[in-house]
Design a protein around this nucleic acid. Structure first.
Lengths: 236, 236
DNA sequence: CACGCTAATTGACAATTGTCAATTAGCGTT
DNA sequence: AACGCTAATTGACAATTGTCAATTAGCGTG
């Protein structure tokens, strides 16, 4: 087996009633009873880095909930390039376009080892109809998608490459629970696809940030950063 | 009175049951009876170019439906600049974040004289609960917002300024019913805010397009364009 | 440890885009 | 037609970013 196994691992049927992220996710407010009776067809999966959950254009039968990890939504461009249009983390819903009957609009790829729940469309639709709570939560998730997309336009696609990189780093920091916590940085290639710049430019900027002491690295892992200086760069 | 009056004009109570764009909008599928009984508090408005429907951060009490015209959603950036994150036309819903209780996330400004219906939140919420049709339509509108935002990322924020401009022009063309129809181009400043480039660069590119015969202009009005050449530039 | 692979970095140069200032064009009013 | 205002265009130059190629670093395997 290759070192980077890209196969899904089935972690059993979902046990939503004891899920610690349930309240942040789709089924907040449902009783344990309701959940356990409805949710048999929900699978809990572990997906390693680089695993593709689904590809752009595929028929969509499931929506995914992220319990842990980081997922990127990628679009292939007509000229052969690609652009990452969203980063999704714990509590986020992946593949919502399935709910309106569309095929998947992006490719969903794991950026950090993920713990997911795969929910068949039928389950979500039924809950949407029967539970006002879920119905409201669903609308909030849709709005969150819009907000995230707007953030990619205003923060990651506007201004100089340097500013955008600073904003990306701050965005990645926010996802962390502990300040100064270690977390894996995206590859330079992914940074490029996130910011709409080339891999080389991304690399140059990161190297420059390191030289200026804006970020400190330990192996491929990110150790800490000068948030004030980053913030200053961010809105320049 | 100034030549460009920026005041709203009240055009009467909405008469949804005879609205010619109803089927594209929120209330598709509702009977004329249902409509007329529920829709008393809906106002029909005419808003001239440059009129601001609402400002970023304002408390949100209404959702707007576009019957005609063009609306831009603008975000103010921390460094003083601004970025347009969406263009909305006939059939689109403006201000959906109101439905989840948020203040407006953008400023909504008229780009081409608009005919609008202003719907109080309560009406939309009630219809969402009582009519499965409206409920489904609403989800589609949310998904459409996400799709539009994604398009702004992949088409208007990726690649060279020239490619982006070509894609913007093709996007504006698609909104037209008749091919080669005249339509008003955005100002160079708005083009810059749409593409994340400066006004000067936008102007240079448009001037170059004219010289190369990619577009022909008549006064401030746009007459036609070489769609094949534009398409070639678009995916370069 | 050497090897092989891929990702990251760097150099050199070209192309694009931003900046600042000046000029021109368009349009409505006087 | 002359005037005044704003938007658009253009020039000159600097700064940023892309392109292509070479080098270095990191990491797992034999």
């Amino acid at each position: 087996m290759k070192p980077n196994c890209t196969n899904l691992e089935w972690a059993g049927r979902a046990r939503c009633s004891v899920c610690d992220v349930r309240n942040f996710v789709l089924f907040a407010g449902l009783s344990a009873n309701t959940l356990d009776s409805l949710l048999l067809p929900i699978d809990n999966l572990r997906a390693p880095e680089h695993h593709t959950l689904y590809g752009q254009g595929e028929a969509a039968m499931h929506v995914y909930t992220i319990r842990a990890g980081l997922i990127k939504l990628k679009v292939d461009l007509p000229n052969g390039g690609q652009r990452i249009v969203r980063l999704l983390g714990p509590g986020d819903l992946v593949g919502m376009e399935a709910l309106v009957g569309d095929p998947y609009h992006h490719s969903a790829i794991v950026m950090q080892d993920a713990d997911l729940c795969r929910i068949p469309l039928g389950v979500v639709r039924k809950l949407d109809q029967t539970s006002p709570e879920v119905h409201r939560t669903l609308q909030q998730r849709w709005q969150r998608s819009v907000d995230q997309a707007d953030l990619f336009i205003t923060s990651l696609s506007t201004g100089s490459a340097e500013s955008r990189m600073a904003r990306l780093l701050m965005m990645l920091l926010k996802g962390q629970t502990t300040m100064h916590a270690e977390f894996v940085l995206p590859s330079r290639e992914d940074m490029g696809a996130l910011l709409g710049i080339t891999t080389e430019t991304a690399s140059r900027i990161m190297a420059e940030f390191k030289r200026r002491g804006l970020v400190q690295m330990d192996r491929s892992v990110y150790m800490g950063c000068d948030q004030d200086k980053l913030a200053a760069l961010a809105d320049s």
